[in-house]
Design a protein around this nucleic acid. Structure first.
Lengths: 188, 188
DNA sequence: TCCTGGCGTTTAGAATATTCAACATTTTTG
DNA sequence: CAAAAATGTTGAATATTCTAAACGCCAGGA
């Protein structure tokens, strides 16, 4: 039992969270039913708020006390990613993936833009890992095997399965196959 | 981003935690550098402590604010388990396991008392999953394969490996093999 | 039985947090 | 550019929490 403790600089933390949510001290104060002055003093660490005050304030965001103390609110958390910013991952010469938010920490989700060149195959020794995954074919076609089932998917088709069921992806066609996938928790 | 929020009944929560850790108000107050009266008032919800006070108090346990707000401190959390209370899990007719704390929630750890009957084998298709695992042979003997390595373990021998390395357990001997294992995170 | 020591609780007063209203500064707008 | 609106900060008054010391209660030991 030991969640990593965030800094106890409550003031900076609150200011950060408030700004991430795009609220002014006055707007948050109004929603929370406290005064803007109180929020100002707290954010400057000139007072240490009571739990009841902090709770009221966080309710105005809204955000639970648990989340407030648990999560790492990095101001640098990127929200938008240019195509060129996606981190590239290659598996052999036939499979490559472009990951959304690879630089983020504490991701609960992994989204990939995958490319399977003609002939690409994740291998006879099926993949197995924890979590769940799903995806939608964007271009080309792909043969997906999941447990005892196998199907050729065309653009627009999709899949969803528990990742602990052995699975395999193959592109038999003459054209590259593009697909967008999501999985949780991230496997890399 | 939404950790389940525990009750905001800070008083009861603090009292519960304090008692779980076997501390009196006075002892905790001494460690935390606050007065026993303050703790009494907080536990009765007659005041809402400041973050700084609550932090000082939790430091005396010690417990982080994040953990305090995150975890579910069920007073009923069982600590001791009679052999008969271990939850039984069978895989085929040759492998069975007895799990410690199967009824607990939020386990970070899984401990099993495993029995491999003569001839038992987890299968040629090696096991792979997230986390790490280790164990000690209690009786009989067992052939364990981990990646490229393979070894016959005797009572007292032990193993430790990252569970994502393909692994396999076999009991070739004429006698049942007993072992105790631990893994994290729990795989079931 | 009457102590003694430990427990949680309570109360008055000191310390701290919060409100209210005003201020200085920046941003928006005509 | 000037006026108006919005933002964060501050000081004095109020409200709340925290301390220090006492209280009542109960379990064990002479």
């Amino acid at each position: 039992m030991s969640t990593t403790a965030p800094s106890d600089d409550i003031g900076t933390r609150l200011r950060l969270v408030r700004q991430i949510y795009g609220l002014t001290q006055r707007e948050l104060a109004r929603r929370a039913g406290v005064t803007n002055g109180a929020i100002s003093l707290i954010e400057q660490n000139r007072v240490s708020p009571s739990i009841s005050s902090l709770k009221k304030i966080l309710d105005g965001i809204p955000l639970s006390l648990a989340d407030f103390f648990t999560h790492n609110f990095a101001a640098s958390d990127q929200v938008f990613f240019a195509a060129s910013e996606l981190t590239e991952i290659a598996f052999g010469k036939t499979v490559s993936m472009r990951m959304v938010g690879g630089n983020l920490k504490e991701r609960a989700l992994q989204m990939l833009h995958e490319t399977y060149q003609p002939g690409a195959d994740t291998g006879e020794e099926m993949l197995r890992h924890q979590g769940e995954e799903c995806g939608i074919i964007v271009a080309g076609s792909l043969i997906i095997t999941v447990g005892a089932q196998e199907k050729t998917l065309q653009p627009g088709d999709a899949y969803y399965f528990r990742s602990d069921i052995p699975h395999r992806f193959r592109n038999p066609g003459p054209a590259p196959c593009l697909l967008i996938s999501a999985s949780s928790p991230p496997s890399f």
